[in-house]
Amino acid sequence: MIPLPNLDVIAFLVLATFAVLCGLSVILQKHAVASALSLVGVMGALAVLYLMLGAEFLAAVQMIVYAGAIMVLFVFVIMLLNAGSEQKSNRPRYFAYFAGIPALLVFLGLIANFILRELPNSASVQFGAFTQGGPAPVGRLLFTKYLLPFEVTSLLVLIAIIGAMVLAKKEID
C-alpha cells in the first residue's frame, strides 16, 4: 500500500499557495473590485488555516466580520463611487519601485531566516491537536481576564459608528 501523504501538509501547502496568489492579485489587479475579491480569497484561506490551528471560533468570526461585513462594505463603496480602474499617473514612483521593493525583499528574507533559525523545532501543526479555540473557552477568557479591553473596544466601536455617520452625512445648508 502506498503511504498516503500527510493531509495536514497538503492542506497547508494548497491554502498557503492560494493565499499568496490572492495576495499578489490584491496588489496587481487594475480594478478595485477585483482587488477586493482577491482579498476575500485571502481571508477565506486564512479562515481555514485558523481552523487547522484549532481556532474554530476565530475562523467563523473571520468569515462573518471580515469577509461578510468589512469587505462587503468595501465592495459597496467601490460600486457606489463607481471607482473604476486606476489611470496612468503623471508622477511615476521611482522611489517605491527601486528602493521600496528591494528593501522589502531583503526584509522578508531576513525575517524568514530569523524565524527558521530561532524556531527550528517549533511544534508541528496537527489538525485537532489543540482544541481550546471553541466558543466556550474564548468567551470565558474574554469576560474574565480581558473584560476591560472588551468594554473599551465596545466604546471604540460606538465612537466609530457616530464618527462614520457624521462624516458620511450630506451637509444640509
Partner: peptide, 10 residues
C-alpha cells in the same frame, strides 16, 4: 450556528 451566519453573510 456560526457557520450558517458566516455563509449567509458571504
Amino acid at each position: 450556528v456560526l457557520l450558517i451566519l458566516a455563509i449567509s453573510s458571504v
